[in-house]
């Protein structure tokens, strides 16, 4: 789970553990719009909730809540690196996001010397209203040197650095819709994790330890 997300243009959102006072407060805000959600179903696994932000595709306030990977596996039937539910506060719609380790051929639209480590896919939830256009975009998580994020993605230098991941939202024609910087990753116990630890965890989970060296070689993220 990342601690902070900064969207190119200046908008930012901080994640709070659901066992903290701020996390509980944020969940109460969510509950005001989605009264059927129960915080106890999310607590106990080191999960977090993000402060409201304006979703770049749906252009409305939303909140994002983590789901344990084992719970997500029960829902979708495949392993995830991370899973979230996104709640659109204005229209009372929601959807599920699964993040999976990216082991396909690298997309041709990414900047040279960057590397896709994961991709996110949105899913409609059974019997819950999903927003129109759910399949019109996809988010890729890229790693790259800070200078490249500045020159190729237009990220503000202050939002780059070692261990920062970049979420790039693209439409179905691979046009970039938005760029996000993800900072400060925590494990399920709320401890800070390093870039190397995250890579090791992700690639070991899908039996692709050969990709660990590719990513931690220093080419993509130092």
């Amino acid at each position: 789970m990342n601690e902070v997300m900064v969207i190119k243009g200046g908008q930012s959102s901080t994640s709070h553990h659901l066992d903290t006072a701020r996390g509980i407060e944020l969940f109460a805000e969510l509950n005001a719009v989605f009264p059927n959600e129960h915080i106890k179903e999310y607590q106990g696994n080191g999960l977090g909730i993000m402060e409201p932000y304006t979703h770049e595709v749906f252009n409305q306030n939303c909140m994002r809540v983590c789901i344990a990977n084992n719970v997500c596996y029960m829902m979708v039937g495949f392993k995830t690196a991370a899973a979230h539910r996104v709640f659109l506060l204005d229209t009372q719609e929601s959807f599920l996001i699964t993040s999976t380790v990216f082991t396909d051929e690298q997309p041709n639209w990414i900047p040279t010397d960057s590397y896709v480590i994961a991709s996110m896919t949105a899913h409609a939830e059974f019997r819950n209203n999903a927003p129109t256009g759910l399949d019109s975009f996809k988010e890729y998580i890229l790693t790259m040197l800070p200078a490249l994020a500045v020159s190729e993605l237009g990220v503000d230098p202050i939002n780059t650095g070692p261990g920062v991941f970049y979420g790039v939202l693209v439409d179905s024609d691979d046009n970039i819709l938005s760029v996000r910087s993800y900072f400060g990753f925590l494990d399920s116990f709320g401890r800070h994790t390093t870039f190397t630890q995250i890579m090791t965890y992700l690639y070991t989970a899908v039996d692709r330890t050969d990709l660990i060296d590719v990513c931690i070689s220093g080419t993509y993220n130092t």
């Binding site: 129960h38 029960m74 829902m75 979708v76 539910r85 929601s94 599920l96 899913h123 059974f126």
Partner: peptide, 9 residues
Amino acid sequence: MRHIMIKPF
């Protein structure tokens, strides 16, 4: 949350 499976059947 138990009802949010993508497709429960």
